[in-house]
Design a protein around this nucleic acid. Sequence first.
DNA 1: GTTCCTGCAAAAGCTTTGCAGAAGA
DNA 2: TCTTCTGCAAAGCTTTTGCAGGAAC
Lengths: 142, 142
Amino acid sequence: MKPLFEDLKQELKMKNISLSHQRLKVLEYLTQNQCHPTVDQIYTNLHKDIPTLSKTTVYNTLRVLVEAGLIRVITIEDHEARYDIDVENHGHFKCETCGTIYDFCIDIDRLSPGDLHNFQINDKNVYFKGICPRCLANIKEN
Amino acid sequence: MKPLFEDLKQELKMKNISLSHQRLKVLEYLTQNQCHPTVDQIYTNLHKDIPTLSKTTVYNTLRVLVEAGLIRVITIEDHEARYDIDVENHGHFKCETCGTIYDFCIDIDRLSPGDLHNFQINDKNVYFKGICPRCLANIKEN
DNA sequence: GTTCCTGCAAAAGCTTTGCAGAAGA
DNA sequence: TCTTCTGCAAAGCTTTTGCAGGAAC
């Protein structure tokens, strides 16, 4: 489900997180670009609109949003964190050729392994890696 | 299943990967310490036995072993890769308090989402985060 | 002798921290 | 005014790269 920008703003207000211009822009970018961007992608794009924006602020804002539970970090490769505004359960597929991350439906909650009794589970993640149809088609052509 | 050190050596020979002293030691460490160690843990421990060992060699060796398919990288947090000698499908649980990674049984292959038609899947990963029973007990005590 | 491996040093890349100034309540 | 946020610069970490010496065959 795509969270509405307005709902998210409301949620931030409720949690007493001030809605600075930079924070709103980061949040807006995430709602409008649900492509699991990296910090650098967010920074580079927003920098066009806000020339004074610093990467530090992007990092700060993302940390605040993660702690507030509005977004989540996706860790598929080390060395590049990606951010996802959809906190509902779903899986991620990363194409090893083009790097694109696709969402897919999966009922992670139905995964309840028998040997995790007495573990407090806070977060469930499923990710696959491989090659996406577009890249497969390119490979076949050449 | 725990792969036998001797079987792994045989596999390396078959793949024409030379069995240098350092490489064998890294492989041996991984078979004897199935605790998903970080590069630093591997390096620090082996360095006691091989004082000349360099971290570069550990990195090089791990890369060779991953490419040969003998071990796999586990990426749960960015900024720390961990290495697992068990390439069979299972999930990982990382305790957010003590950092320990636990294996758990899960039939990842049965996860076959309907919306990944035409995707070539090379790798499937499941990881949970939360608090392990030991840390939960500690928290309750205090 | 040729090839591959090791390991030091340096570089690269992402993220965090310190801190001064600015913005907002 | 007081608190919080921003953003520059520097530092911190993990990982990679360049390269010279060494080992193995």
